[in-house]
C-alpha cells in the first residue's frame, strides 16, 4: 500500500510488506544519511502527555533529515487546558505543519485525529493502546541483530518478560513477530500473563508459545529477551508488588549460561527489572535499541511525506 500521505496509527494498519519496507528504508537511511531529504518540511509534535525518548527521537530524526520541528510537550501549556477539543487542535496544527506526531493519554486519540486531519498523523502512543513506531524500531533492532528474521531461514526464539497483560509494546511486537519464523517464550507474574487471545493467534499461525518459570530459564533458551517494566498500579497489594519486583530482576549472574548471541531488549525506561551489572555484559542492547528509533522514524517520516516511495 502507498505510504505517501498515509496515517501510521496502529500495527493493525501495517502489513508484513509494509513492515519490511520500513525496515529496508531505515537501513538505507542509517547507512547513507540524507541530511537534506526533508528540507522545507515541518513536523508538529503534539505531546499531550510527557515522553522522553519518543519525542526526542522524532525531533532528532526530522532534524537529521533537514526538516524543522514545532510543537509542545505538555498539554497544560495549550488551548486544551481552555477546553479546546482534540479535533480543533489537530485542525489548527495541520494549517502549520506537513506531518503531525502525537502522543495522548487516551486510547484511540490518534485514530480520532485522522478523522479530521488532511496531513499524515503518526501515533507516538495513545494511552495503553498502540505505539506502532516503537514496534517498528523493536523489529528493526531484532532484524539488525539477526538478519535471518525476515528471510525466515532460521527460527528465532524471543522471550517476553514482565507485564505481558497490559504492556502495549509487548502486544504490538508479539503481533508483528507472528509474520515471521519465531518461537515465543513468556514469563510473567500471576495476573499479568499474556492474554489467551494472543496465544490463540500465534497457534493459528503455527507458532508455539511456551510459558517458562524463571528469568534465567528464559535467558538461557532465547535469542532475544524482551524485558518490560512492572507497574506498581497493576498490583492491588503493595506487599505483593515488592515481592514480585524482586523476583523479576534480571542480573548478570542469571546470564552465565545464556547463548553468546543472546541480546536483551527493553522499551525503556527501566526501573528495577534489569540490574545495572547487566549493562556491562555483551548481552545488553537496550540503549542501541533506543538509538534505532532515529533511522526507523526517519524512514516513516520520509515515507508518509512522499520523499521516498
Amino acid at each position: 500500500m502507498e505510504f505517501n500521505g498515509r496515517h501510521i496509527v496502529s500495527l493493525r494498519d501495517l502489513s508484513k510488506e509494509d513492515l519490511l519496507k520500513i525496515l529496508s528504508i531505515a537501513k538505507n537511511l542509517e547507512e547513507k544519511p540524507q541530511p537534506d531529504l526533508l528540507s522545507g518540511f515541518l513536523m508538529a509534535t503534539l505531546f499531550f502527555e510527557p515522553s522522553t525518548r519518543t519525542r526526542l527521537s522524532f525531533e532528532a530524526a526530522m532534524s537529521r533529515l533537514g526538516g524543522r520541528v514545532i510543537g509542545f510537550a505538555d498539554a497544560n501549556s495549550t488551548s486544551q487546558k481552555k477546553g479546546e477539543s482534540l479535533a480543533d487542535t489537530i485542525r489548527m496544527a495541520e494549517q502549520y505543519a506537513d506531518v503531525i506526531v502525537m502522543r495522548h493519554p487516551h486510547d484511540g486519540a490518534a485514530r480520532l485525529a485522522t478523522e479530521v486531519s488532511g496531513i499524515p498523523i503518526i501515533n507516538g502512543g495513545d494511552g495503553s493502546n498502540q505505539h506502532p513506531t516503537q514496534t517498528c524500531l523493536d523489529l528493526y533492532t531484532i532484524n539488525k541483530l539477526f538478519p535471518n528474521l525476515i528471510d525466515d531461514s532460521d527460527q528465532l526464539t524471543v522471550a517476553f518478560a514482565g507485564d505481558l497483560r497490559y504492556g502495549r509494546t509487548v502486544h504490538s511486537l508479539f503481533e508483528a513477530l507472528l509474520h515471521f519464523n519465531v518461537k515465543i517464550l513468556t514469563i510473567a507474574p500471576k495476573g499479568l500473563e499474556l492474554p489467551e487471545s494472543f496465544t490463540q493467534k500465534a497457534t493459528a499461525k503455527g507458532i508455539t508459545v511456551t510459558v517458562v518459570e524463571t528469568l534465567q530459564e528464559a535467558a538461557e533458551q532465547s535469542d532475544i529477551l524482551y524485558m518490560t517494566r512492572l507497574q506498581e498500579e497493576r498490583f492491588p497489594d503493595p506487599v505483593e508488588f515488592d515481592h514480585v519486583k524482586s523476583s523479576y530482576r534480571l542480573n548478570a549472574r542469571m546470564l552465565k549460561n545464556a547463548k553468546e548471541s543472546l541480546r536483551i531488549l527493553h522499551p525503556l525506561p527501566r526501573v528495577n527489572e534489569i540490574a545495572t551489572d547487566v549493562d556491562e555484559t555483551e548481552h545488553a542492547h537496550y540503549f542501541p535499541q533506543a538509538g534505532n528509533g532515529i533511522p526507523v522514524r526517519q524512514a516513516l517520516l520520509a515515507l508518509v511525506l512522499g520523499k521516498i516511495s
Binding site: S85, L86, A87, H106, G108, L112, G127, S128
Partner: peptide, 14 residues
C-alpha cells in the same frame, strides 16, 4: 458508548 473508560470517545464529542 465505548465501555473502555479511557477511550477517547468518552472524552470528546465524536
Amino acid at each position: 458508548k465505548c465501555s473502555n473508560p479511557n477511550c477517547i470517545t468518552n472524552f470528546q464529542n465524536c
